[in-house]
Design a binder for these strands. Structure first.
Length: 125
DNA sequence: CCGGTGACTCTAT
DNA sequence: TATAGAGCCACCG
């Protein structure tokens, strides 16, 4: 009783929740990617406000493994639509397999009609 | 606090 | 058109 209420809507910033990091933000956007669509690291980085932090987005994908809900990292490609991160999957063929399951055609480790399937968060959202 | 790293992107030669 | 180098941001030890 003497202490503050359990509600305490204003902890005066003494206990900042670092749970929401740049990574969490990236994962959230990737999970918003509709099935059968793809996007690029730069597009996500740009949507988050840092158009030049594309590398950090890829780094976040590296930590996306085992996250819950799962992050469809196979829908994130580089600017060329190439499966640059396929080597980081449990199997180099897994990424392409997942994309084909979404009706996405892949040739030479590159998504066909990438521009057409491109999903830009800054435009769609 | 400082340095290294990385699933990127752009520009120059 | 292809290859090489630099920039840039965020996380980790």
């Amino acid at each position: 009783m003497s202490k503050k209420k359990p509600s305490d809507p204003k902890p005066t910033g003494t206990k900042p929740e670092h749970t929401y990091s740049f990574f969490e933000n990236v994962w959230a956007v990737v999970r918003l990617i509709p099935r059968g669509r793809v996007t690029s690291y730069g597009a996500i980085a740009r949507y988050l406000g840092s158009g030049k932090s594309a590398r950090t987005v890829g780094y976040a994908m590296n930590a996306a493994h085992g996250q819950s809900p799962p992050v469809p990292a196979h829908r994130v490609l580089n600017r060329n639509g190439m499966l640059t991160g396929k080597h980081h999957f449990p199997g180099a063929e897994v990424m392409q397999y997942l994309l084909e399951k979404e009706k996405i055609k892949v040739a030479n480790d590159t998504v066909v009609d990438f521009k057409r399937l491109f999903w830009d968060p800054a435009t769609e959202l």
